[in-house]
C-alpha cells in the first residue's frame, strides 16, 4: 500500500471516530425527543404547567404537573448557590490575598480532594447525619434546606477553585501597580482584582449552577420527594432529576414519555447555560482581539 493511500485511510479513520464522538450528543437528543414524542403529541405539554398534581400513573385521573418539580430544582439550586458562592469567593480572596503560600497550597490540595468526593457520598452523609439534625430542629428533616445544604457543600470546592484560578489569572503587573500606589487589600481586591477576575468567577458560578440543576444523587436522598410547592425551607421538595431517578424504574407508556420530556427540559436548561457561557467567552475573546 502506498504511503499516501495509508495516510488517506488514517485520515478517514480518524474522521470517522471524530464523527462518532460528535454524534453521541445528537443520538441522546434523538432518543430524548423520540421518547418524549407520545407526550408531546398528545398535547400534554400545556398540562405540565397547568395541572395541579403529579400522578401520571393514575388510570382514573392522570395529572401531569411538572411545574412544582421545576420549582423544586430551581429552589434547591438557588439555595445551593447562596451557600457556595459567598463562601467560595470569600475563601478564594482569603486564599489569594491573605494566606501565606505554604498554607495556600495546602488549602488548594484540600479543596481539590473535596471536589472529587462522589455525589452519592454527599447524599449518604446528608441522609444519615444532616437530615436527623434538621429533623430535630423542624420535622421531617428531608427538606429543601437539607437538599440545598448538601448540594451547596458539594459544589463549594469547585466554586472556590475556579474563583482561585480566576484571581490567580489577574496580571501581576496590575497588582504591582496597585502596590506601587500604596493601595491596601480592600482597594486592591475590590477595585483591581475582582473586576479583572469577574468573568472567570461568573463562569465558575454558572458552571456550578448547571451542575446543581443536573445533580441527582446528592438531592434525591435528602429532599423528601414530595411533588408540591414547598411553603418553607423545612418542607420536602422533589427536583426534576429526583423524579426521573425515582420513577424511571417502573414508569410505562405516557408516564415514561413524561419523564423523557422532563429530561429534555434538563438538557435544554444545562445546555443553554453552558452554551451561553461559551458564547460569552467567545465574545470576550473577540473583544480582546
Amino acid at each position: 500500500m502506498s504511503r499516501s493511500r495509508s495516510d488517506i485511510l488514517l485520515r478517514s479513520g480518524l474522521g470517522t471516530l471524530a464523527g462518532l464522538s460528535g454524534s453521541v450528543v445528537l443520538l441522546i437528543l434523538f432518543f430524548l425527543v423520540a421518547g418524549a414524542m407520545p407526550a408531546l403529541r398528545d398535547g400534554v405539554l400545556p398540562r405540565l404547567f397547568l395541572d395541579e398534581f403529579w400522578q401520571p400513573g393514575s388510570q382514573r385521573d392522570p395529572q401531569y404537573a411538572l411545574l412544582p418539580m421545576l420549582a423544586g430544582s430551581i429552589l434547591v439550586t438557588v439555595l445551593a448557590i447562596l451557600i457556595a458562592a459567598p463562601l467560595g469567593i470569600a475563601g478564594a480572596i482569603f486564599h489569594r490575598f491573605y494566606l501565606p503560600p505554604r498554607f495556600a497550597a495546602w488549602n488548594e490540595h484540600a479543596l481539590e480532594l473535596l471536589a472529587g468526593v462522589p455525589s452519592v457520598v454527599f447524599g449518604f452523609w446528608g441522609l444519615t447525619v444532616l437530615v436527623p439534625l434538621i429533623n430535630r430542629l423542624h420535622p421531617p428533616g428531608q427538606s429543601l434546606l437539607a437538599a440545598g445544604i448538601v448540594l451547596g457543600l458539594m459544589i463549594l470546592p469547585t466554586v472556590a477553585l475556579t474563583s482561585q484560578a480566576a484571581l490567580r489569572a489577574v496580571p501581576g503587573s496590575q497588582l504591582f501597580a496597585a502596590a506601587g500606589l500604596g493601595l491596601g487589600r480592600v482597594a486592591t481586591v475590590f477595585h483591581i482584582a475582582l473586576p479583572a477576575a469577574r468573568p472567570g468567577i461568573v463562569a465558575g458560578v454558572i458552571l456550578a449552577v448547571a451542575r446543581a440543576v443536573g445533580e441527582t444523587m446528592a438531592v434525591v436522598m435528602v429532599c423528601g420527594n414530595i411533588a408540591k410547592y414547598p411553603q418553607s425551607v423545612f418542607d420536602s421538595v422533589r427536583p426534576v432529576t429526583a423524579t426521573i431517578a425515582l420513577e424511571m424504574g417502573y414508569a410505562t407508556s405516557s408516564h415514561k414519555a413524561l419523564l423523557f420530556t422532563a429530561a429534555l427540559f434538563l438538557v435544554l436548561l444545562s445546555g443553554a447555560l453552558v452554551g451561553w457561557l461559551a458564547f460569552r467567552k467567545g465574545k470576550n475573546e473577540a473583544a480582546v482581539n
Binding site: 503587573s173 496590575q174 504591582f176 501597580a177 496597585a178 506601587g180 477595585h191 479583572a196
Partner: peptide, 9 residues
C-alpha cells in the same frame, strides 16, 4: 514601571 500599567478602568 517599564511596561505602562494603567488599571483596566
Amino acid at each position: 514601571f517599564q511596561k505602562p500599567n494603567p488599571f483596566p478602568h
